[in-house]
Simulated assay, not measured.
Amino acid sequence: MFLIYNYLPGGNLESFIRGRSAATVQWKILHKIAFHIARALAYLHDQCAPRILHRDVKPSNILLDDEFNAYLSDFGLARLLGTSETHATTGVAGTFGYVAPEYAMTCRVSEKADVYSYGVVLLELMSDKKALENGFNIVSWASLLLRHGRAKEVFTAGLWESSPHDDLVEMLHLAITCTDDTLSTRPTMKSVVQRLRQIRPS
Protein backbone atom coordinates (compact mmCIF):
# COMPACT_ATOMS: atom_id res chain seq x y z
CA MET A 1 0.00 0.00 0.00
CA PHE A 2 1.22 3.49 -0.85
CA LEU A 3 0.04 6.77 0.66
CA ILE A 4 0.35 9.74 -1.68
CA TYR A 5 0.32 13.25 -0.26
CA ASN A 6 0.38 16.64 -1.95
CA TYR A 7 3.68 18.44 -1.56
CA LEU A 8 3.19 21.60 0.49
CA PRO A 9 6.23 23.83 0.03
CA GLY A 10 5.31 26.19 2.87
CA GLY A 11 6.27 23.64 5.52
CA ASN A 12 4.34 23.61 8.76
CA LEU A 13 2.89 26.45 10.81
CA GLU A 14 5.43 25.96 13.57
CA SER A 15 8.27 26.76 11.16
CA PHE A 16 6.31 29.71 9.78
CA ILE A 17 5.78 31.19 13.26
CA ARG A 18 9.36 30.68 14.41
CA GLY A 19 10.96 31.85 11.17
CA ARG A 20 9.00 34.91 10.12
CA SER A 21 10.37 38.40 10.43
CA ALA A 22 8.41 41.56 11.18
CA ALA A 23 8.28 42.30 7.47
CA THR A 24 6.34 39.10 6.72
CA VAL A 25 3.67 39.56 9.39
CA GLN A 26 0.56 40.60 7.51
CA TRP A 27 -2.97 40.69 8.82
CA LYS A 28 -4.38 39.14 5.64
CA ILE A 29 -2.04 36.15 5.87
CA LEU A 30 -2.64 35.67 9.59
CA HIS A 31 -6.40 35.78 9.09
CA LYS A 32 -6.24 33.43 6.10
CA ILE A 33 -4.35 30.79 8.07
CA ALA A 34 -6.62 31.12 11.10
CA PHE A 35 -9.72 30.87 8.92
CA HIS A 36 -8.57 27.78 7.03
CA ILE A 37 -7.73 25.91 10.26
CA ALA A 38 -11.09 26.84 11.74
CA ARG A 39 -12.96 25.75 8.62
CA ALA A 40 -11.16 22.39 8.59
CA LEU A 41 -12.08 21.71 12.22
CA ALA A 42 -15.67 22.84 11.67
CA TYR A 43 -15.89 20.35 8.81
CA LEU A 44 -14.66 17.51 11.03
CA HIS A 45 -17.04 18.46 13.84
CA ASP A 46 -20.19 19.28 11.89
CA GLN A 47 -20.14 17.77 8.42
CA CYS A 48 -18.47 14.40 8.83
CA ALA A 49 -20.58 11.38 9.74
CA PRO A 50 -19.58 10.23 12.25
CA ARG A 51 -18.01 13.38 13.59
CA ILE A 52 -14.25 13.45 14.06
CA LEU A 53 -12.16 14.81 16.92
CA HIS A 54 -8.61 15.60 15.88
CA ARG A 55 -7.16 15.66 19.43
CA ASP A 56 -3.74 16.99 18.41
CA VAL A 57 -4.23 20.43 16.91
CA LYS A 58 -0.91 22.27 17.09
CA PRO A 59 1.31 24.29 14.71
CA SER A 60 3.48 21.34 13.67
CA ASN A 61 0.33 19.52 12.48
CA ILE A 62 -0.79 22.37 10.24
CA LEU A 63 0.80 22.52 6.78
CA LEU A 64 1.04 25.52 4.44
CA ASP A 65 1.27 25.75 0.68
CA ASP A 66 3.10 28.52 -1.16
CA GLU A 67 0.04 30.79 -0.97
CA PHE A 68 -0.41 30.34 2.80
CA ASN A 69 -3.42 28.08 2.47
CA ALA A 70 -3.48 25.97 5.65
CA TYR A 71 -4.15 22.22 5.83
CA LEU A 72 -4.81 20.20 8.98
CA SER A 73 -2.65 17.05 9.06
CA ASP A 74 -1.63 14.08 11.25
CA PHE A 75 -4.82 12.30 12.25
CA GLY A 76 -2.98 9.62 14.24
CA LEU A 77 -4.78 10.54 17.48
CA ALA A 78 -8.17 11.31 15.93
CA ARG A 79 -11.32 9.66 17.27
CA LEU A 80 -14.86 9.24 15.98
CA LEU A 81 -17.44 10.94 18.20
CA GLY A 82 -20.58 9.37 16.83
CA THR A 83 -23.87 10.58 18.27
CA SER A 84 -22.67 11.21 21.84
CA GLU A 85 -21.34 14.54 23.04
CA THR A 86 -18.14 13.16 24.57
CA HIS A 87 -15.71 10.32 24.10
CA ALA A 88 -14.20 8.54 27.10
CA THR A 89 -10.56 7.51 26.84
CA THR A 90 -8.27 5.46 29.04
CA GLY A 91 -5.57 8.14 28.89
CA VAL A 92 -4.95 11.64 27.66
CA ALA A 93 -3.65 11.96 24.10
CA GLY A 94 -2.27 15.09 22.55
CA THR A 95 0.54 17.53 23.20
CA PHE A 96 1.11 19.25 26.54
CA GLY A 97 0.16 22.91 26.27
CA TYR A 98 -2.63 22.26 23.76
CA VAL A 99 -4.69 19.75 25.78
CA ALA A 100 -7.89 21.18 27.23
CA PRO A 101 -7.94 21.20 31.06
CA GLU A 102 -11.13 19.16 31.39
CA TYR A 103 -9.71 16.46 29.11
CA ALA A 104 -6.51 16.31 31.12
CA MET A 105 -8.48 15.95 34.36
CA THR A 106 -11.27 13.54 33.35
CA CYS A 107 -10.06 11.75 30.19
CA ARG A 108 -13.37 12.69 28.58
CA VAL A 109 -12.88 14.53 25.32
CA SER A 110 -15.38 16.51 23.27
CA GLU A 111 -15.33 18.86 20.32
CA LYS A 112 -14.57 21.65 22.77
CA ALA A 113 -11.13 20.12 23.38
CA ASP A 114 -10.25 20.78 19.74
CA VAL A 115 -11.63 24.31 20.19
CA TYR A 116 -9.26 24.84 23.12
CA SER A 117 -6.28 23.63 21.08
CA TYR A 118 -7.29 25.92 18.23
CA GLY A 119 -7.36 28.87 20.62
CA VAL A 120 -3.81 28.12 21.74
CA VAL A 121 -2.65 27.91 18.11
CA LEU A 122 -4.35 31.24 17.40
CA LEU A 123 -2.48 32.86 20.29
CA GLU A 124 0.82 31.50 18.97
CA LEU A 125 0.02 32.76 15.49
CA MET A 126 -0.62 36.26 16.80
CA SER A 127 2.24 36.51 19.27
CA ASP A 128 5.10 34.32 17.98
CA LYS A 129 5.35 32.85 21.49
CA LYS A 130 5.29 29.14 22.33
CA ALA A 131 2.34 27.62 24.18
CA LEU A 132 4.51 26.59 27.14
CA GLU A 133 8.14 27.42 27.84
CA ASN A 134 10.09 27.63 31.13
CA GLY A 135 6.98 28.19 33.22
CA PHE A 136 5.40 30.54 30.68
CA ASN A 137 1.80 29.74 29.74
CA ILE A 138 0.52 31.59 26.68
CA VAL A 139 -3.16 31.33 27.69
CA SER A 140 -2.62 32.82 31.16
CA TRP A 141 -0.29 35.50 29.77
CA ALA A 142 -2.63 36.65 26.99
CA SER A 143 -5.68 36.58 29.28
CA LEU A 144 -3.87 38.74 31.84
CA LEU A 145 -2.80 41.32 29.26
CA LEU A 146 -6.29 41.52 27.77
CA ARG A 147 -7.90 41.98 31.21
CA HIS A 148 -5.52 44.82 31.99
CA GLY A 149 -6.10 46.67 28.73
CA ARG A 150 -2.68 45.77 27.33
CA ALA A 151 -3.80 43.80 24.29
CA LYS A 152 -1.20 45.51 22.11
CA GLU A 153 1.56 43.62 23.92
CA VAL A 154 0.23 40.25 22.77
CA PHE A 155 0.93 40.84 19.09
CA THR A 156 4.21 40.13 17.39
CA ALA A 157 6.41 43.01 16.27
CA GLY A 158 4.98 44.97 13.36
CA LEU A 159 1.53 43.39 13.39
CA TRP A 160 -0.15 45.99 15.62
CA GLU A 161 1.36 48.88 13.67
CA SER A 162 0.29 47.55 10.26
CA SER A 163 -3.14 46.05 10.99
CA PRO A 164 -6.63 47.22 12.02
CA HIS A 165 -6.59 47.31 15.82
CA ASP A 166 -10.27 46.48 16.26
CA ASP A 167 -9.91 43.33 14.17
CA LEU A 168 -6.79 42.21 16.01
CA VAL A 169 -8.44 42.68 19.39
CA GLU A 170 -11.52 40.83 18.15
CA MET A 171 -9.33 37.89 17.12
CA LEU A 172 -7.60 38.00 20.50
CA HIS A 173 -10.97 37.93 22.27
CA LEU A 174 -11.90 34.94 20.11
CA ALA A 175 -8.72 33.07 21.07
CA ILE A 176 -9.28 33.77 24.77
CA THR A 177 -12.88 32.59 24.54
CA CYS A 178 -11.75 29.39 22.81
CA THR A 179 -9.37 28.67 25.70
CA ASP A 180 -11.84 29.40 28.48
CA ASP A 181 -11.84 26.78 31.25
CA THR A 182 -15.64 26.55 31.04
CA LEU A 183 -16.81 24.32 28.19
CA SER A 184 -20.12 26.13 27.78
CA THR A 185 -18.28 29.42 27.22
CA ARG A 186 -16.14 28.08 24.40
CA PRO A 187 -17.72 28.53 20.97
CA THR A 188 -18.19 25.76 18.44
CA MET A 189 -15.81 25.73 15.51
CA LYS A 190 -18.75 26.61 13.28
CA SER A 191 -19.25 29.75 15.37
CA VAL A 192 -15.52 30.51 15.16
CA VAL A 193 -15.70 30.38 11.37
CA GLN A 194 -18.64 32.78 11.41
CA ARG A 195 -16.82 35.24 13.66
CA LEU A 196 -13.71 35.12 11.49
CA ARG A 197 -15.83 35.85 8.43
CA GLN A 198 -17.07 39.01 10.16
CA ILE A 199 -13.53 40.34 10.55
CA ARG A 200 -12.25 39.19 7.17
CA PRO A 201 -9.75 41.69 5.73
CA SER A 202 -11.11 43.79 2.87
Rank of each mutant, 00 (worst) to 15 (best):
K129G: 00
K58P: 01
A175R: 01
Y103N: 07
H148W: 12
P187Q: 03
E161W: 03
T83L: 14
Q26E: 12
C48F: 08
I138L: 08
C48T: 10
G11T: 06
V109A: 10
V192Y: 04
R200C: 13
Q194R: 15
D65H: 03
I29P: 07
Y98N: 03
G149N: 08
E170D: 04
M189C: 06
D128I: 01
H87L: 11
L63R: 02
S127L: 12
T86N: 08
A142S: 12
R200I: 03
T83K: 13
I138G: 00
E170S: 15
V169Q: 13
G19F: 15
R195V: 04
E85V: 15
A175E: 00
E102Q: 13
M1N: 05
C178W: 11
H31K: 12
L174C: 02
T182G: 02
R150K: 11
G135A: 04
A34Q: 03
F2G: 04
K32C: 03
A151Q: 09
M1G: 10
Y5Q: 14
I199P: 03
A142M: 14
T95Q: 12
S127R: 07
D74Q: 08
A34M: 06
F155N: 05
R186Q: 14
Y71F: 13
F68A: 13
Q26C: 14
T179H: 02
G19R: 13
G97P: 01
T24V: 06
L3R: 05
A22F: 07
S84V: 13
L132E: 02
N137Q: 07
H31R: 06
D128A: 09
L8T: 05
E124M: 04
A131N: 01
P201H: 07
E67G: 04
G76S: 12
I17D: 00
F155R: 08
P201C: 11
L3V: 11
R51Y: 03
T182Q: 15
T90Y: 03
M189H: 04
L30T: 07
H148R: 10
W160D: 05
H45F: 01
H173P: 02
I17Y: 05
L63H: 02
A40W: 05
D114K: 05
Q47D: 11
L196S: 07
S21T: 13
